[in-house]
Write a protein that binds this DNA or RNA. Structure first.
Length: 321
DNA sequence: CAGACGTGGGG
DNA sequence: TCCCCAAGTCT
């Protein structure tokens, strides 16, 4: 048993053999599990278009599935294509986004739709390089779209994948700092034949999302438990320093959220006074938050000094002429 | 590269 | 209650 453990040289890229099979993650194990455990998420249904998948990826950035679920279906029914989305005003899009969080994503999604409608004939690009150039699309989202919408065998690395790889392959309690080059190399090495690669990536993410979770992993029901290096090493706890938890209460982010909330709820524009009551405690902070919202294009000031969501319909009785 | 950027639910 | 964290992107 001790000799067994001695063979686990996870400091090196040696493809160790356990029970006659390669170490780390076996595609068959993972895919077999996924066939039964896959969640029935609406954006995975047959007939969902690349654009609609892209919308789900925007919404899922730093946001739990449970909070995206109630929004996505109505959203894609209302704006099924890039051109339909582009035809809406940013204000419409920001309102539909509601309190999903990080409203800049909504703005970028609208910008992304505009570019795709105008420059790509309303067709979402299928290659990572092109996708990465679009507003709001970074390395993860570009790969997710290429993989999940177009079935391309590209590595898709999100926080779930990084955690699963850190544990199962590297024997660490959690992922080290992100490193695109290393992360992609890690996953590329795991990818099975191109026919199964896309589903493998979906399965890897799914495992991290519902089994190999950050807080309390359910190793007992993990399809990788027999060869997971972290588990074989005795599931050691994390060693490195915890990065300080980010505060929210009292931050500019909270103020921005509060101000935007006022604008979302008003049908037309609002006065400076209405902005002020949304955050009366600190005028300096309030002005800073408002300025940043203006700067981000999330809010605009009208000629009469009132504030509104960008592209907001001004045709109300109080609008100046 | 560290820090900003929303929001709310679960342990 | 408080803290952690959830399919990242941009500067």
């Amino acid at each position: 048993m001790s000799a067994f453990h001695a063979d686990i040289g996870f400091e090196f890229g040696i493809p160790d053999i356990v029970h006659g099979r390669p170490m780390s993650i076996d595609a068959g194990d993972l895919l077999g599990w996924f066939d039964n455990a896959e969640r029935d998420l609406p954006w995975r249904a047959a007939g969902v278009t690349p654009w609609q998948i892209l919308v789900s990826e925007f919404m899922l950035q730093q946001t739990p599935v449970a909070r995206v679920l109630p929004l996505w279906t109505d959203w894609v029914a209302r704006w099924p294509t890039p051109s339909a989305t582009a035809a809406a005003t940013p204000a419409d899009v920001l309102r539909a986004w509601g309190k999903l969080g990080y409203p800049r994503r909504a703005k970028r999604l609208h910008e992304c739709a505009t570019v795709i409608a105008r420059d790509f004939a309303d067709v979402v690009p299928d290659d990572v390089e092109t996708l990465e150039q679009l507003p709001g699309i970074g390395s993860y989202t570009a790969r997710a779209v290429a993989c999940f919408a177009y079935r391309k065998p590209v590595p898709v690395v999100d926080t779930n994948v990084r955690r699963v790889v850190a544990r199962a392959v590297h024997g660490r309690a959690d992922a080290a700092g992100p490193s695109a080059k290393r992360d992609h190399a890690d996953v590329t090495a795991l990818l099975p034949d191109s026919a199964r690669a896309a589903r493998f990536s979906a399965a890897l993410m799914e495992l991290g999302a519902i089994v190999c979770t950050a807080r309390s992993p359910r190793c007992d029901s993990c399809p990788l438990r027999e060869r997971c290096r972290w588990r074989l090493a005795g599931s050691p706890s994390a060693d490195g320093p915890r990065r300080p938890a980010q505060r929210y209460a009292g931050t500019d982010r909270q103020v921005r959220g509060r101000l935007l909330d006022v604008l979302r709820d008003k049908e037309f524009s609002v006065t400076r006074a209405e902005i002020d009551v949304a955050w009366p405690m600190d005028a300096v902070q309030r002005e800073r938050a408002l300025a940043s919202l203006l700067d981000d294009g999330l809010v605009e000031q009208l000629a009469d000094g009132r504030f509104a969501l960008p592209g907001q319909d001004r045709n109300d009785s109080t609008a100046s002429r």
